[in-house]
Amino acid sequence: MKSDNPFVPHMATLREAVELTPDVMLFRIDLDDPDLKPDFSYQPGQFVFVSAFGTGESPFGLTSVSYRRGPLEVAVRKVGTVTGSLHELEAGASVGVRGPFGNHFPLDDFRGKNIHIIGGGIGFAPLRPVILTILDHRSDYEDLLILNGARTPQDLVFASEFDTWAASPRTRLELTVDAGDKSWTGRVALIPSVVRELNLSPQNSVAVICGPPIMIHFTLIELKKLGFADHQIVTTLEGKMKCGLGKCARCNVGDKYVCKDGPVFTLEQISTLLEQF
């Protein structure tokens, strides 16, 4: 039954569940309604609510890119009841999808610039569509730095794509972990100190950051020390959300709603908010 009720999700089918890390699954989801599929377009940074009926729904940043016309992809870390239920689903299961919601990363403004993508843990997931868009339109952008950090080597998301990314023209991939293991020969350092060590240049650059609040906080400090201006720093705010429509008022911060006015904000925009999230 079709409904104009914005709380009623589109029915969808879980096509595939791929284990990205011990606690993160990548879900590939197809909308059931064939009429809906061609019109369901979205931009990097936008999110959807995914329902596990009987448990509830939660918002997840889309990790896929709309123009590739594949299934919707979200990376889900098992941290609560809804994510726990989603992790138990098998291919073929019915799920609900509402969205897409929110604003998006300003990729048009990134054209002709050097781009530093800095992601921590599951926060790296919504940055993947930014990377894919840049790599698929490589000549539109200058140098690309991808910095992906996680707690341990096993927690680095999208590891199977690292080689492709690293081999792309004018692209540099840096990985770091908080704690290594026997097989890890790479960097062991927190993201903010890697940012300092890499001595990122603010010249004709933007930095795009997503990750846990504490990582974002200290990364911003380092970027500012390196001379990045507030308008050169693009990040995301996280908020408890129940509707995605600016109605439940859960994600209200200052005169903005994270769901509607965000989740993507420049540091310049964030600094004008009365309340700091």
Partner: peptide, 25 residues
Amino acid sequence: VERVRSWESCQSPGFTKIAGGHDPR
């Protein structure tokens, strides 16, 4: 199974608490 909405208050301690435990307020 039904999805239900109910009144909530910004004074509830968990009003803004997100998955993973972070609470910006």
